[in-house]
Design a protein around this nucleic acid. Sequence first.
DNA 1: CTTGAAAGCTCTGTAAG
DNA 2: CTTACAGAGCTTTCAAG
Lengths: 184, 184
Amino acid sequence: MPNTGKTESVRSRPPEARPLDAFDRRILGELAADAALSYADLGSRVGLSAPAVHERVKRLRTTGRIRGTVALLDGPSTGKPFLAFVHVDSTGWGKTQELLDLAELPEVEEIHSVAGDTCMLLKVRCQSSRALEGLLARLYAMPSVKATRSYVVLSTYLERPPQAGMTETLETEWAAGEADDTRP
Amino acid sequence: MPNTGKTESVRSRPPEARPLDAFDRRILGELAADAALSYADLGSRVGLSAPAVHERVKRLRTTGRIRGTVALLDGPSTGKPFLAFVHVDSTGWGKTQELLDLAELPEVEEIHSVAGDTCMLLKVRCQSSRALEGLLARLYAMPSVKATRSYVVLSTYLERPPQAGMTETLETEWAAGEADDTRP
DNA sequence: CTTGAAAGCTCTGTAAG
DNA sequence: CTTACAGAGCTTTCAAG
């Protein structure tokens, strides 16, 4: 996790999006799994030298492919054992700004607009059901909010950041099983 | 993001869960926002010396509070622009093992069991709608799966890892506004 | 892209207050 | 907890092939 050296003046917006090759994808995959890797180790894993891999990682950062490196916190043990997904139905379509203001709350981790029988989808991690109640109160205070449906998480079996990789499991699987797909 | 020094043989399971104080919380908050911080910088931010903060971070790692440090990848630009939440209704309650096997797929990022009008909630990020089709096909191949509802994400306005911090915004807010809560 | 080498910063541990 | 010192390691950069 720690930093080293002195070149750390990156963190910009994507200047141009050049296509990434196989090396870049492998680098992204390794770094997405563990960012606390030395460039020497990373290079040996992807089959490149340390200077080369360093150059690529620097470019991946400046081009925005890598948005940052963060520490993964264990939710339950850090005082926020209460996880919930909240579906929000709202009237009108322009009053979403109010919802976006919820991003200020540290308890709100995700805000998406979705297609389906609801408009917005929120992911909230907080300390207690009382905090969720507070969020709902804030939601219903918005005139455009018509209804909400909350899905309180009972158990989390898997939760991980986006997996980078060349493994297109689902697409290939589906294509392969298309011929002999027999549903019981 | 690179590593340094030599002490990197951590990554165990929580031996004991000691309560974390204000310093620990501030450290977790900083590291959750940016894990590529030097211990010197981190110490100055939380008001501790470098050796002290290093000792605390090491303890937070071994106790499982910090599960790891990963690179945040920009989903859309890394070839997986298709994000969806899938609700799964299943009959019976013991056949969830089949669903847990989905964790093998890199496209599946989250698996929760929830309370509400559905049993399981999946978060899936893949390359195309075809890949989502593949997942649904695999779901419906399970005898216990009764129905699914998919919520395809149109726009993501916020998506970030768990925020550690002392800011209990929602609870305090709700408690404060309880007296003069007037809904329009 | 590679190897090799020099320089710099950080980490890591030890010691003492 | 703090400051201070010293050893080790990795990064970072430059050179040349």
